[in-house]
């Protein structure tokens, strides 16, 4: 009898319950998984023109009919923040015309600026048509991403060189109080609509005159506190 009990005891000793161990590991895994996915932030590439003086002969002239200028305005609250989506978007085509007042008001809607998208889509339809075909082809033939990107870049160059094709040249001019998120959103629209020529610029005097005619006063940039 005594012998029997002993052997039973031994058997019990060797078995360790791993459930809490697994629980703890799972928790740790969840922690690490969340940390790693959060870590890598995405980026938007931005190329600004040089500050150096460029010879007038070297400057590429853009057609007035192709030019679209977006002005992004924002509202700064008492904390000094400019909240996303509270500002207004304005645009004009060609040159700023104070007399005829060619400023048009737009708004980013909740879905990410469909009004702007529609407008840009219409102006960039030649490229977008071919781009969509390329995308369909990609899905059909399982084209690798690298080749797709290369082809898309070629397409952009082709349209750019084609004088008959409709292609907008976009200038984005945020006011000092514009929300940074709105500016990034506008850059997104450039990417979504495959706009190949766009530029971030500052407001000039003509822009300011046009804005003030519409009752929008732009303040001078403030220096950081």
């Amino acid at each position: 009898m005594a012998k029997k009990e002993k052997s039973r005891q031994r058997k019990f000793d060797t078995r360790i319950d791993f459930t809490p161990m697994v629980d703890m590991n799972m928790l740790l895994i969840t922690f690490f998984m969340l940390c790693t996915t959060m870590l890598k932030s995405a980026t938007v590439e931005l190329a600004l023109p040089t500050n150096d003086k460029v010879d007038e002969n070297n400057q590429t002239e853009m057609k007035e009919s192709e030019a679209v200028t977006f002005i992004i305005d924002g509202v700064q609250n008492e904390k000094g923040e400019s909240k996303e989506g509270e500002g207004m978007i304005y645009y004009y085509e060609g040159k700023p015309d104070v007399e005829n007042n060619n400023l048009v008001q737009l708004k980013f809607d909740k879905e990410g600026g469909n009004t702007i998208r529609e407008m840009l889509e219409k102006r960039n339809e030649d490229l977008l048509r071919e781009y969509r075909e390329l995308k369909l082809e990609k899905e059909k033939t399982n084209m690798p991403d690298t080749i797709f990107k290369k082809k898309a870049a070629e397409l952009r160059v082709k349209i750019k060189k084609d004088d008959k094709a409709k292609k907008p040249t976009v200038a984005i001019k945020p006011t000092p109080t514009a929300s940074y998120a709105d500016v990034v959103r506008m850059l997104d629209e450039m990417q979504i609509n495959q706009i190949s020529t766009w530029q971030v610029e500052t407001l000039n005097d003509q822009d300011k005159a046009l804005l003030s005619k519409n009752g929008i006063n732009v303040r001078e940039p403030e220096t950081p506190k």
């Binding site: 924002g74 109080t177 514009a178 929300s179 940074y180 998120a181 990034v184």
Partner: peptide, 8 residues
């Protein structure tokens, strides 16, 4: 995202 653009 709520930073005024002037600082950027």
């Amino acid at each position: 995202k709520d930073t005024p653009f002037e600082y950027v």
